[in-house]
Every structure is written in C-alpha cells, then in structure tokens.
Write a protein that binds this DNA or RNA. Structure first.
Length: 263
DNA sequence: ATGGTCGTCTTACGA
C-alpha cells in the first residue's frame, strides 16, 4: 500500500497536477494540506472519477486538509483531540487536522501552524498545538501499542540543521527554534518514527522550496514535510521517496509530495 | 530547461 502527503497550496489551482500525479504514481492514500477552500469549493468530482473517496475539512481560504483514498475511508475526525488548540478572534478550531482509517491504517493529515515569528501569538499557538498532539498521540499508543498510525503532513518544523539550506539565514526564525524542535522530537520519542529519512538521507534533501529568489534551482529548501509512523506501522515500511520532480514545470506547489510504501 | 513569488474573499495578508 502506498501512502503520500502533499501540501498542494490550493487544491483548486492544483487539481490538474494532483490528478496527474495520482494517476502516475499508483497512490492508495493521499493526505493533502492547504486546500485553501470551503467544502462546497472542493473539486471532488475529479477525484471520484479516478476511483477515490475523499474527506475534506475547509472553512475558508486559509489552511484546509483532506484525505483521498481508494482503500477505504472510515471513522473520520476533524480534530486530533477535543481540546486541540483554537486560534483567531473569536478563537475557533482551524482546519488543520483530519483523520480517517484507510486500509487498516489510521492516517492523519496535519497542517501544523506556521508560527510566523518567535514573538507572535501564532508561535505560542504552534507550540501548544504540537504539545497537545504529543499528549494525544502518546495516549493512542498507550491504549494500543500495536496501533497502525501514520501522522503525515506539513509540520512547519525543520528538526535538524541538515534540514535547512543555510542555518545562518534562519537564525532567530521559526521552524528551527529549540522549543519547536523539542516539541517535534517529543512526538518522535513517544514512538512515532520519521520513516522517510532513512530512505532519503541528507544533507541537501528537502520537501519545500520558497517560490521567491529562485530557491528551487538554487537548491535552497527545507525539510518540513514528514511521515511519522507508529512502531507497528514503521516495521512495515519498505521504501520511501520525496518526489522533487513535482516541484518543476508550470504551476507547481512550493512543496513536493512525500511517499512511503508499506507491505 | 527548473529560471528571479504565489494564492486568496487580491491593492492586503499569509506563507
């Protein structure tokens, strides 16, 4: 079974690419982030025509997450916990999590808050969001140590210096701060392994390149999109890759798809 | 060719 994650940066502007990529890559489950649309705007017909089911959580032009599956889509949840942190004025549950059971695997599509700057309320929100996810996902494994769980998406954290094209440029910025890295590592330490990195060793291996300043051809990227797997699922991972070819051509997302194959 | 931001509720803001 093949599971993938991809921040598409607007599903409406990227639907032709998504359809072509699904067809070309024999994908069973695709987790999407940044759909940037409401339910009624989601281009579901194109996906149904390919034989996929889908679930989407989108409130407006911001955020938005979806799961697309051809191996079933059951027990859908729009938040990872009842107390997933809220944000905004008035504070509300943002469209940043969607989970479903697909082919026996509990798959979560996450769009972790960006943080913006280290002194922004959005940064505090980001840390709380990750800390609460750590608590919730730890409990899932406590409840069932054999659980098949994939937590995938845009984590907006570069866990190691190798995941950043030039650390000096990111001094004092989000994505690389110690609290963010500790929050990410806590989830790994709880038992959720990065199952892509062993198959795609760095340095210079990224999943995101800014649209500006020719970042992609200059190889100035970040590794911030991850597939974290519970122990029982991690044991089934045969291979993985980052499809950086998808960052090329006319009208790409600024993120590349990340893919695993499990037995 | 991969080539000097992009996407949205677009002249402002988030990423």
């Amino acid at each position: 079974m093949r599971i993938a994650t991809w921040n598409v940066n607007s599903i409406r502007s990227r639907i032709d690419r998504v359809v072509a990529w699904l067809e070309a890559n024999d994908v069973d489950v695709l987790a999407i982030q940044e759909t940037k649309c409401r339910e009624d705007q989601f281009p579901g017909l194109e996906l149904s025509a390919l034989g996929y089911e889908y679930v989407h959580f989108g409130l407006n032009q911001w955020n938005g997450v979806a799961l697309i599956s051809r191996v079933g889509l059951e027990d859908v949840a729009m938040s990872y916990a009842d107390d997933q942190p809220h944000f905004g004025d008035p504070a509300h549950l943002e469209a940043r999590s969607i989970g479903a059971t697909c082919g026996g695997v509990r798959v979560w599509s996450f769009y972790v808050p960006n943080g913006r700057t280290l002194d922004d309320p959005h940064y505090t929100y980001k840390l709380a969001w990750l800390e609460r996810l750590h608590a919730a996902s730890s409990q899932w494994l406590a409840d069932d140590p054999q659980a098949q769980i994939a937590m995938v998406g845009d984590w907006n954290v570069a866990p190691t210096d190798e995941d950043v094209w030039d650390m000096s440029v990111f001094e004092g910025h989000t994505h690389v701060s110690v609290p963010e890295r500790e929050a990410f590592q806590a989830i790994v330490d709880a038992g959720y392994a990065d199952v892509v990195r062993p198959h795609t060793p760095g340095p210079g291996v990224y999943t995101y390149w800014d649209y500006q300043q020719l970042a992609f051809p200059k190889k100035r990227g970040l590794r911030i999109d991850f597939i974290l797997a519970s122990p029982a699922l991690a044991a089934r991972v045969d291979s993985a890759f980052i499809d950086r070819e998808e960052r090329k051509g006319k009208g790409p997302s600024d993120h590349a798809p990340v893919v695993i194959d499990i037995s």
